[in-house]
């Protein structure tokens, strides 16, 4: 496959994932009873890191298919791992996120987690990049 096309597609996916991570953080911030500031920090840190990686990918000049895959895998792990962090920490009772809000945040986190896993496997298949970078 054309590395430029792969680059564009992966960059788009990652920009979207970064946006969704920001949304999850904001949703947790809005629905938490206490320690709300933690989620603002988490939203900014996670999304910025994923966006930085997508920027790195889009700025990769004359990269081979494999190199595009390597950078995409690095960002893919970031987004998958941060989703896992959200999914496992948001239900903590100290934050007081309950009911529909909790279900929504968890649903987006788990969807991002599964989407991340799928993205990684797909990048591996399309570019031959190793998952253990």
């Amino acid at each position: 496959m054309n590395p430029e096309e792969l680059k564009r597609r992966y960059t788009t996916y990652k920009a979207l994932a970064g946006l969704l991570l920001f949304v999850v953080g904001l949703a947790a911030f809005a629905s938490a009873d206490s320690y709300r500031s933690h989620f603002i920090v988490a939203a900014v840190v996670t999304s910025v890191l994923v966006w930085l990686n997508s920027l790195r990918l889009s700025n990769c000049r004359n990269c081979s298919e494999r190199r595009v895959g390597e950078i995409a895998v690095q960002g893919g792990w970031l987004w998958t791992s941060f989703s896992l962090a959200y999914a496992s920490i948001v239900p903590a009772k100290i934050y007081g996120i309950e009911g529909a809000a909790l279900a929504l945040v968890e649903a987006i986190s788990v969807a991002l987690l599964l989407g991340g896993a799928y993205f990684l496997l797909r990048v591996k298949k399309e570019t031959g990049a190793a998952l253990t970078i």
Partner: peptide, 9 residues
């Protein structure tokens, strides 16, 4: 790789 970024959050 799955754990590391989550860990530091």
């Amino acid at each position: 790789y799955l754990i590391v970024p989550a860990w530091f959050l």
